[in-house]
Design a protein around this nucleic acid. Sequence first.
DNA 1: CCTACCGATCGGTAGG
DNA 2: CCTACCGATCGGTAGG
Lengths: 203, 203
Amino acid sequence: MASHTAEPATSDTRTTVTSAAVLDAALTLFAQRGYHGTALSQVAEALGIRTPSLYNHMRSKQELLQTIVAGTTAGVLQDFEAAVEGVSDPVERLRRATRVYALRHATHRREALIVNRDTPSLDEPARSEQQEQRRKHEHALRAIIAEGVAGGAMSVESPALASFAIREMCVSIARWFREDGPFSAEQVADQYSRFALQIAGAR
Amino acid sequence: MASHTAEPATSDTRTTVTSAAVLDAALTLFAQRGYHGTALSQVAEALGIRTPSLYNHMRSKQELLQTIVAGTTAGVLQDFEAAVEGVSDPVERLRRATRVYALRHATHRREALIVNRDTPSLDEPARSEQQEQRRKHEHALRAIIAEGVAGGAMSVESPALASFAIREMCVSIARWFREDGPFSAEQVADQYSRFALQIAGAR
DNA sequence: CCTACCGATCGGTAGG
DNA sequence: CCTACCGATCGGTAGG
């Protein structure tokens, strides 16, 4: 996996830039400054090359954003399905679904920040497609809570409200988590999945 | 080139633009597209005037952002202090503090979206000042939880983690709340303050 | 409130 | 991978 810290422009080591390196630099800068707040000249500078050379490795700035967002939302849905597959108890399904969702936001911070901030900057039809994908995950999580409530294993006034609260609580991990902080990604994920069960009133 | 700009949706024909109107248009557009994603020409167009005319009502685009962010964070701290003043029970303090925080994010959606997305776009020293103000609120909320845990009225592994989770859960209300939706702002605030108590393990 | 206009910078292309 | 360069647009100013 590519390093998260792009090579400084002052380092005069000869650079062999790849598409993956361009994507990695874009991930770091888009996450820091936002899509509209990042100039391609800054991406190029982080890689130690001139702006036009970027076009040997990508088609456009917009394509970089689409690649980042599409890959991330696909990963979220894959994670979800793998986590709940074969588990029928709604409480255990909710625990696993939120644990993996929280874990992803601690381990893929840049991707999460960009998806949540810059999805509106996608051109159509990518924008609508991505919103639809995110809605899928939202509804799947909500369905687990609704099922738990129906079966008496959970208690909440509105599954929709609880689902929103749980999701966004997990998403926000990307804003404060630090790899060198006091908690590991797994510890945070365990704690947050416990919070999720408490929000859902799981007995 | 005759003036044929589209008529603004929010004002009648040929009204005199005020500073408040400029701020309001900026609030709407910054919230929708982000600070860097909004051009002053779009703000002007929304008001039915030319871009240079904006400068009769503001000093710069950056000043608009600073006004929005500073006013919002000041309001958050005021709300907090008014809500917990004279209340000593930590559980009741947490209920009130989160209720008012959630309520604000339902009733001041645009401000909340801008603060959470575009605070990094503030020039120094405003940026550091605002981060310090937000930290104050974070620590105050955390202190309530720590006090509750110390007194046995709450139970959570890490007050810091619980505080982050609660705050960001409330902040996210600004992303989905609609005035014409199924829940009133007050109903959402009540539900979310209940979620907060559950996260904190309040008995 | 306007027109006219500024230098800077944007994403992207031409052509090697 | 580069230099040279494009048209468009940015925030902002001059001067009425």
